[in-house]
Design a protein around this nucleic acid. Structure first.
Lengths: 354, 354
DNA sequence: ACAAAAAATGTAAACGGTTACATTTTTTTT
DNA sequence: AAAAAAAATGTAACCGTTTACATTTTTTGT
């Protein structure tokens, strides 16, 4: 592949001049510029940005670590990061980490080794202490979906507890009184917080959720199916189910219908995340909207700004690092079966929510 | 960030020795190695792979261009590429191109400028001629989902025409005789080929699909809804609908039910791609399985091999560059309403298909 | 037409690694 | 214990850019 030297030789100028043409420096005569450009074109010259990165100390790269890019939640996260990247003439370097803290640490190291301008992490296994170490050493790293007080400045996250509360309040407003929940078994805060928020809201009405009424599974469709089957096997009765996320909720609905229950007539199901799946499924899912793309953008911007020490673009007073989930009422939740007559939701109201 | 020089100075050895330690060269005394490693750890040293790339001429990077990473089809493509990347100790550099050939060309240029070891392209706007130019100049570029004879060696694609045929044959076997189709409006081959295959199979039974029975739209849920509404507005009657992809099929089902038709009882709908959405939707979609992850892996491997001129790993006799779609029967297609009594599909058969 | 000022171009060092080859140190052989 | 062989380490060139500074060329003013 042609280099700047090849172009310089062919155009009979110095490499400095070629460099000036590449970088649109205006201190070059029009005639020279045109000549150099034509040589570049003839040789199919493409600047080597790795070499440029060496000398400028900027890579125009944003690193992203996620567990699985084929999961639509993370795909949306990637989209948000990508949109900020392109705004900054940068690209996204994608690393998937395979369900272990080793693999996550490796992914992070490889991004550090590439000298990404900013790094955005969605880690499900790495311990807080490891993330604290990393962020304290490399300040352009931003942690998404975790709230670690020691590095609060570099964390962007959702108020999961509030999400749990909103879910419970919604179900309570629909007169439900017997609940169950299926949560992610991963060793992260999210499920604990969502559940704790849920319980808090129940508490206020003197209602409770026992240990038997909560089952853990993998945070996907299959995990949802299995968790519900386990609930049913243990003779749990409930009219409302709070799922860790939409994928589990959809799996749950599948398993419930398989077992002869109608959703939402017999059992209301509420999800979490509001990935576009929620909109495609039948019944359409009532869920808590997770502004993942907004969070991703904020995180990417923050990482870039930390890298260049310019905080100007980010108005801290406008966006807190803690985002709030929003209840989106669709079709999977209705009044409890034995309660007051069902007040059907207005379709246009639902659409307006999106 | 610490450099190799910092480590060398601190450890009182030459940078060559540090380099040997980094690269696990065994020509280093154990004592020296340990000392250097401890200094590296103390300084939090991370090798600069951009600098390394300069001198080794390998970047351990695979470039990928897709229209939209949040689309599950492309997310799966990315997953396939990523899995090959990690097998080769590499990372994926992601570029999204925004619906224009300029934007696609720009994305490709930026990957060339990063000297990716291999580049995988899913382009929906760039002309064949442009792709031919690129591949002929840079042989490590592989084009996915397009069949361009001039660069056949670098193309991995699906037999879309066969897909259309299989769809038609399936619907014909269910005794359907009045058809409609909704296709992507994008200026690529896929929709044309799928439709042409569909028509070919109808022809054999002396059936036809008129121009009025085909409507074009954006290849997503909304496009599917609009296309169906347009069909209905034009008084088209049909018992079977062939959709360009699953997203359009799901939109179509939505619109059909809105208009009072039952799917599949009144109208059978068949999709394309078999993204996991097809499985989540109600009714579950009958569709043509697009082995996108396998194609992605093949493309990535091919790109890497073209780059290193080693073809050993790829056994050409095993995998042709043309992949075949497979019919997956689920719940959105049944016998035509006026035809023989409905023979319901066995659920366990369906599961076995997946 | 000439000097001075301005503009264009060139030179060379740096960026952070790898690696062939030279040199030094250690080990083995006698 | 000295010489030879082997192993470890160091030196320096190179990879492809950018950029401060030096030099040359062109333009301007008189």
């Amino acid at each position: 592949m042609a280099t700047i030297k090849d172009v310089a030789r062919e155009a009979k100028v110095s490499i400095a001049t070629v460099s000036r043409v590449i970088n649109q420096d205006d201190k070059v005569r029009d005639k020279t510029r045109e000549h150099v450009l034509s040589v570049m074109k003839a040789l199919g010259y493409q600047v080597n940005v790795n070499a440029r990165a060496l000398s400028t100390q900027k890579t125009a790269t944003l690193g992203l670590v996620v567990p699985d890019i084929s999961d639509p939640f993370f795909a949306c996260l990637a989209k948000g990061v990508d949109s900020i990247a392109r705004q900054h003439q940068s690209q996204v370097l994608l690393c998937t980490a395979q369900n272990s803290s080793d693999s996550e640490q490796q992914a992070i190291d490889s991004l550090l080794q590439r000298r990404c301008d900013g790094i955005i992490l969605y880690c499900t296994h790495l311990a807080d202490s490891a993330l604290i170490d990393i962020v304290q050493r490399y300040s352009n790293v931003v942690v998404v979906a975790r709230n670690i007080p020691e590095i609060a400045e570099n964390c962007i996250y959702l108020d999961d507890e509030l999400g749990g509360q909103l879910a419970a309040e919604h179900l309570l407003a629909l007169s439900h009184s017997r609940f169950a929940s299926i949560m992610s078994e991963l060793p992260i805060q999210d499920p604990k917080l969502r559940l704790s928020g849920f319980k808090t809201a129940l508490d206020k009405q003197a209602l409770t959720l026992t240990e038997e009424q909560v089952v853990y599974g993998t945070p996907d469709q299959l995990g949802g199916e299995q968790a519900v089957n386990s609930l049913l096997k243990n003779q749990q009765t409930f009219t409302a189910l709070f799922a860790y996320n939409d994928a589990m909720a959809i799996g749950a609905i599948s398993a419930l219908e398989e077992a002869g229950f109608k959703v939402p007539d017999d059992i209301s199901v509420i999800g979490f995340d509001d990935i576009y799946l929620a909109h495609y499924s039948r019944p359409k899912l009532t869920t808590l909207h997770y502004p993942v793309e907004a969070i991703a953008k904020h995180a990417a911007l923050l990482a870039i700004n930390k890298h260049s020490n310019k905080y100007s673009q980010l108005d801290k007073t406008v966006h807190s690092h803690r985002y709030q989930p929003i209840l989106v009422e669709r079709q999977s939740t209705v009044f409890a079966p034995t309660a007051a007559p069902k007040q059907s939701l207005n379709e246009s109201q639902i659409e307006r929510q999106n």
